[in-house]
Amino acid sequence: MLQLDDIHKSYATGSEVEIEVLHGINLQLRRGEFAALIGPSGSGKSTLLNLIGLLDRASRGRLLIDGQETGSLDDSALTRLRGSRIGFVFQHHHLIPAFTALENVMMPMLVERGRPDDEMRERAATLLEQVGLSAQAGNKANQMSGGQQQRVAIARALAMRPSLVLADEPTGNLDTKSADSVFALMREVNVAHQTTFLIVTHDARLAARCDRIIELVDGQIVSDKSPV
């Protein structure tokens, strides 16, 4: 479902110097895969995730989602594709504080359809129930724990029934217990809906529980294997 061919990414720093952060990434993810992306800090994990999530464009190389080449799409087409196919979970700043948990989960649907309706409200409620937060539906972000916020973020990422969920250190800010339950939740969704997951993590223990571990060092994939 996802294919990267020789992806390069450079950043312009200062006036003329360009630093290449990713040096030719080749990667394929199949539907329903549950993969971990690991590597030292600064190795380019977030950069790669942003490229896959169509938040940024590669300097070179091809990126295909469900067979569709994305390099030639314009901004609004990328935005639409991103909205409908891809869900994001970030480490920090998860939710929009002006909205309740339920409304945050509705947000991707609202953004796409333009106006709230009962159907999206029901779907959001169902998702909150799945992540075990029905009781917190009316809470704002500052009225929930970090683990609860991250569960809401996962529910939100799933709202559009994306085929791919990208998570950048989703448990980075959580204690072990919350991290475990958030991780378990993603796994459940993966199994139930065959949703593909690509999870950046520094937690070797959690990485070991994925189907596949991709290791990035200095902008190159140095190993790509199943955990033992």
């Binding site: 999530g53 938040l55 901004d75 609004s76 935005t79 639409r80 991103r82 909205g83 409908s84 994001f88 970030f90 700043h93 929009i96 504080p97 002006a98 947000m107 991707p108 953004v111 796409e112 939100r156 559009m160």
Partner: peptide, 16 residues
């Protein structure tokens, strides 16, 4: 800016 970024990541357009 972070909320704007998140909304954009969720598929909100520049026009929105």
């Amino acid at each position: 800016s972070k909320e704007i970024g998140i909304l954009r990541a969720m598929g909100a357009t520049r026009g929105q």
